[in-house]
Amino acid sequence: MTDQQAEARSYLSEEMIAEFKAAFDMFDADGGGDISVKELGTVMRMLGQTPTKEELDAIIEEVDEDGSGTIDFEEFLVMMVRQ
C-alpha cells in the first residue's frame, strides 16, 4: 500500500470502505479485481455520462499508481477520497 493509499484509508470509516467496495465490485464486471477502461466506460454510460476514450484513459491514469492500466481497489479508494 502506497502512502497515498494509506492516507485515503485514514479518511474513511470501515462502513464507508465497505460501501466503496460494493461500488467497486459493480464497476469490476468481470470480477478480475480491477477496473478496466471498458468497465469504467460501461458504468459511466449507465449513469448517463458519455465519456470519450481519452477521458476514460485520463481518469485511470490519474490514479493508476502501479502503471497497470487499470484501477485496483486501493487506487479506487484514492480516487473516491479525491472527489
Rank of each mutant, 00 (worst) to 15 (best):
residue 1 M to L: 07
residue 1 M to A: 10
residue 2 T to S: 14
residue 2 T to Q: 15
residue 4 Q to S: 13
residue 4 Q to C: 11
residue 4 Q to L: 08
residue 5 Q to F: 13
residue 5 Q to W: 05
residue 5 Q to L: 09
residue 6 A to S: 11
residue 6 A to N: 09
residue 7 E to H: 04
residue 8 A to D: 09
residue 8 A to N: 04
residue 8 A to C: 00
residue 8 A to M: 08
residue 9 R to P: 09
residue 9 R to L: 06
residue 9 R to G: 06
residue 9 R to C: 05
residue 10 S to L: 07
residue 10 S to K: 12
residue 11 Y to C: 11
residue 12 L to N: 02
residue 12 L to D: 04
residue 12 L to G: 03
residue 12 L to E: 02
residue 13 S to G: 10
residue 13 S to Q: 06
residue 13 S to V: 01
residue 15 E to F: 12
residue 15 E to D: 06
residue 15 E to K: 13
residue 16 M to I: 03
residue 16 M to T: 13
residue 16 M to V: 08
residue 17 I to N: 03
residue 17 I to T: 04
residue 18 A to S: 08
residue 19 E to G: 09
residue 19 E to A: 08
residue 20 F to L: 05
residue 20 F to R: 00
residue 20 F to W: 08
residue 20 F to E: 00
residue 20 F to S: 06
residue 21 K to T: 02
residue 21 K to N: 08
residue 21 K to G: 02
residue 22 A to I: 03
residue 22 A to L: 08
residue 23 A to S: 08
residue 23 A to G: 05
residue 24 F to N: 01
residue 26 M to V: 10
residue 26 M to E: 09
residue 26 M to L: 11
residue 28 D to I: 13
residue 29 A to W: 05
residue 29 A to C: 13
residue 29 A to H: 07
residue 29 A to L: 14
residue 31 G to P: 02
residue 32 G to Y: 02
residue 32 G to F: 05
residue 33 G to F: 00
residue 34 D to T: 12
residue 34 D to G: 11
residue 34 D to M: 03
residue 34 D to L: 14
residue 34 D to N: 03
residue 35 I to V: 10
residue 35 I to T: 00
residue 36 S to M: 10
residue 36 S to Y: 15
residue 37 V to M: 13
residue 37 V to N: 15
residue 37 V to F: 04
residue 37 V to P: 04
residue 38 K to A: 10
residue 38 K to W: 07
residue 39 E to R: 12
residue 39 E to F: 09
residue 39 E to T: 06
residue 40 L to F: 02
residue 40 L to G: 01
residue 41 G to A: 12
residue 41 G to S: 11
residue 41 G to I: 11
residue 42 T to C: 15
residue 42 T to G: 13
residue 45 R to M: 05
residue 45 R to F: 10
residue 45 R to I: 01
residue 46 M to H: 06
residue 46 M to S: 14
residue 46 M to V: 09
residue 47 L to A: 08
residue 48 G to F: 01
residue 48 G to A: 04
residue 49 Q to R: 12
residue 49 Q to A: 15
residue 50 T to S: 14
residue 50 T to I: 01
residue 50 T to P: 07
residue 52 T to G: 12
residue 52 T to I: 07
residue 53 K to Q: 15
residue 54 E to I: 12
residue 55 E to Q: 15
residue 55 E to R: 08
residue 55 E to L: 06
residue 56 L to H: 07
residue 56 L to F: 11
residue 57 D to M: 10
residue 57 D to G: 06
residue 58 A to D: 03
residue 58 A to T: 13
residue 59 I to F: 10
residue 59 I to G: 05
residue 59 I to R: 06
residue 60 I to C: 08
residue 60 I to T: 13
residue 60 I to G: 06
residue 60 I to W: 04
residue 61 E to V: 05
residue 61 E to S: 09
residue 61 E to A: 15
residue 61 E to D: 15
residue 61 E to F: 06
residue 62 E to L: 08
residue 62 E to W: 15
residue 62 E to F: 08
residue 62 E to V: 08
residue 63 V to P: 03
residue 64 D to T: 11
residue 64 D to Y: 14
residue 64 D to K: 08
residue 64 D to W: 08
residue 65 E to K: 02
residue 65 E to V: 12
residue 65 E to T: 07
residue 66 D to P: 08
residue 66 D to H: 14
residue 66 D to L: 08
residue 67 G to A: 12
residue 68 S to F: 13
residue 68 S to M: 04
residue 69 G to W: 02
residue 70 T to M: 14
residue 70 T to P: 01
residue 70 T to C: 13
residue 71 I to H: 00
residue 71 I to D: 00
residue 71 I to N: 00
residue 71 I to Y: 01
residue 72 D to N: 14
residue 72 D to Y: 07
residue 73 F to C: 01
residue 74 E to P: 02
residue 74 E to M: 01
residue 74 E to R: 03
residue 74 E to H: 01
residue 75 E to Q: 13
residue 75 E to K: 03
residue 75 E to T: 13
residue 76 F to N: 00
residue 76 F to L: 04
residue 76 F to C: 01
residue 76 F to Y: 01
residue 77 L to V: 12
residue 77 L to Y: 06
residue 77 L to P: 00
residue 77 L to S: 04
residue 78 V to M: 11
residue 78 V to P: 11
residue 78 V to W: 07
residue 79 M to V: 14
residue 79 M to T: 13
residue 79 M to N: 02
residue 79 M to I: 05
residue 79 M to S: 11
residue 80 M to T: 04
residue 80 M to C: 08
residue 80 M to W: 09
residue 81 V to G: 10
residue 82 R to W: 13
residue 82 R to N: 06
residue 82 R to F: 04
residue 83 Q to K: 15
residue 83 Q to P: 15
residue 83 Q to A: 15
